Computed example of a mutant assay.
Amino acid sequence: MPDGQRADARRNYARILAVAEKEVAAHGAAASLEQIARTAGVGSATVRRHFPTRRALLEAVSHKRIAALGARAHELTGTGDSRAALLEWLDDVVAYCVSVRGLADALAYDGVSDPVHENACSVAMEEAAGPLLRRAVQDGAVTEGVTVADLITLIVGIVRATEHHPDPAARADRLFRLAVTGLSPDRPR
């Protein structure tokens, strides 16, 4: 939120975001914008003024977690085995996405090519994990041509496919392990 906004607008934003975090945690990306407005004590137009799209709301709700994953990628860059570092980061992404409703949807690519509506969460992840992936590719640990976008798309698909499973974390982890084996079949994890 821009710092130049009036104090009441900043308070509304903070209140809406706090309510949205709870609603997204309870209902995922399908959280009702109208319910968020009611609970925050503002009109739905106020919610839409601060968050013009559902993606904008999900990105704001996910901001802290995306920043934490970015910091983790930076922490792992240049440490130890490049494949192990990349896989450790990807494990963290899978675990976050499984445990935090709405995060996978915030990362999902929606096919929008307009930079104004670019997926800020995915861009942040690509920037943070780019060095990890480049090093793994240079070391021959990951197939050349694999992109961070490919890996995020894979994780989003796995998380969405397993969200209604009785044990989504275990199922997502299993599917991710199968995908990893496919990335580098000569090097089991």
Rank of each mutant, 00 (worst) to 15 (best):
E144F: 11
A37F: 10
G78V: 07
A29V: 06
Q35A: 15
A172D: 05
G140E: 12
V94E: 09
D167N: 15
L57F: 10
A128H: 05
D114T: 04
E144D: 11
L90A: 12
R54Y: 01
R174D: 15
E34K: 14
E34C: 01
V24Q: 02
R54M: 00
V93T: 08
L87H: 05
E23T: 07
A7R: 14
Q138S: 08
D114K: 08
V94S: 06
R38E: 11
E163N: 05
V100M: 11
A7G: 00
D167T: 12
V61K: 11
M1W: 04
A108I: 05
M125K: 02
A136D: 12
V93G: 04
D8Y: 10
E59G: 11
A18K: 13
R187F: 05
R38T: 09
M1F: 01
L183C: 00
D8N: 13
L69C: 00
R65M: 09
L178C: 08
A30P: 01
R135L: 08
D3Q: 08
A95K: 07
A7H: 09
R134K: 13
G102A: 02
E21F: 00
Y13S: 08
S44N: 09
A25H: 07
L183S: 03
K22S: 14
D91H: 14
D81N: 15
